[in-house]
Design a protein around this nucleic acid. Sequence first.
DNA 1: GGTGCTTACGCAGCACGTAATAATC
DNA 2: GATTATTACGTGCTGCGTAAGCACC
Lengths: 292, 292
Amino acid sequence: MDPHLLATFVAVARHGSFSAAAAELGYTQSAISQQIAALEADLGLVLLSRRPVEPTPAGARLLEHAGPLLLRLRAARADVLRAAAPPRHRLRLAATALAVNPVLAARLALARAEQPRLEVSLHIGDRARIGAMVAEGEADLGLADGIAAPSDPLRLPDTGPMTAAGVTEAALVVALPAGHPLAGRASLRLADLADARWLQTPLCPLERLRDLVGEGFRAGLDYQGDDVYTVVNLVAAGHGLTLLPVSALPGASAGPVRGVALAFPRLVHRVELLHGALPPGPAADLARVLSG
Amino acid sequence: MDPHLLATFVAVARHGSFSAAAAELGYTQSAISQQIAALEADLGLVLLSRRPVEPTPAGARLLEHAGPLLLRLRAARADVLRAAAPPRHRLRLAATALAVNPVLAARLALARAEQPRLEVSLHIGDRARIGAMVAEGEADLGLADGIAAPSDPLRLPDTGPMTAAGVTEAALVVALPAGHPLAGRASLRLADLADARWLQTPLCPLERLRDLVGEGFRAGLDYQGDDVYTVVNLVAAGHGLTLLPVSALPGASAGPVRGVALAFPRLVHRVELLHGALPPGPAADLARVLSG
DNA sequence: GGTGCTTACGCAGCACGTAATAATC
DNA sequence: GATTATTACGTGCTGCGTAAGCACC
């Protein structure tokens, strides 16, 4: 179970071809063939069916393990190196689309005011990408958002040993078209909206709602992006409802979308700060300021 | 970051000696020295101070990663092999001390009645041990218990990719000495008992309570065992209070210990079934019966 | 001076590339 | 017959053990 062989196996499975994997990894086809043979001999199992090259059931099982395993290996390396590296002034901050809310944007401004030498670049990605970037040292700090019960941690995908701490929790509202029959209510229960049509978005995945409340929440439009502007416009046009942090709704009073407070279950929009080793220095200072 | 070198590094750090690690691993001192040198050269960091042999800060950081990493590697191997192995009739069941409650004991009896050929051995250990046993294939199934909010998963230590599913949830009671002023109450709020003295036990760790409720919960006696008989006797003798599943309290009415229902926060004693790959066979059948 | 880590050196095994072979489309 | 995996074989490198060296107790 040499990680080197595991990486080769993953590449072959991804390409569905020994030669393509060889090209990617800078080996000859022959070397790849020998590596796969070695891995199969080690486990005593056939991992790939040839022609076409596809994982066998055992190979598929191994594939599920291999990715996270290799990520953790890279993450461990990055973490140890980062802990020992000299402090950096050029910090990379990775965040999901809704994570940089007004509070955190203000804290970031505060940190930059306090440390004039600090340079920050901000990178947006999905949750798994944020986790992987922080784990592998591509980002110094990460901010991930999600829907959770108050003071409950987010259920982030396991990307290795790193620290995740909640930094902000904000009220969630149901985003409804202004003309919606329920748009005038002071508050709503999620269960009352189980029969409505909902947007399926990364910001508010419907299976999460079903987890929390139960059946229902039919998918309307499936939006595979993460910018709030589009989502709001989709809601306004009646493609479906969604949950948003109150700060994400535009122009409080007028406008084509209404936000109605969520009375039950009690849910919040939670943002967590992710980081690995933080030796004293700008990164640790920024983490402190962002934590409030 | 060859896992082989990582394992050597862990052994050296554990023994505080190159030669002792060499003896354990079946190498010469020289080989160990070269392996550590290779690892240090790879990372560009000194991982161990020599004479005495102790981890440097960077080495300590690496040690935190190395254990889980190596566990995951063994777990992945065990999981793939298990998925491909022929079905076994001799099953090993690993459980924490409070996990085999009346419901699960009955389900286990049911499974044995349904499958006369089934042989089961039951092994008790702490949570981390249970997780590791299941991950590495030393046990076919695991049962772990803990305190959680209703239908919330337990926060089990990460021991790699395996399935954890709740199987039972039972009411929790506060165990009080019969003479305790509050022993007559119909129910109690945990916050009202924050000023009392509590047993510190693996079954009911006080930091978990502080997590859920807040400050307080002074530690009385620290009991580092996990048998309920002793715990009950310690409570009766006034060493401190503790939370137990209602089924763990002896003889409902009389006796030196009273159990009082927990009104708030709503907490349950939850048991989760852990397993890796489960190909059709006795192990999968047993898992199905245990799940109810 | 003894214990214990490091360095030097030689050898064996292994993993790669080249090239020939076999198998599938 | 073209493409692609496997097998055969030669080579260079890596990693081990033996043994000498060196440092700290």
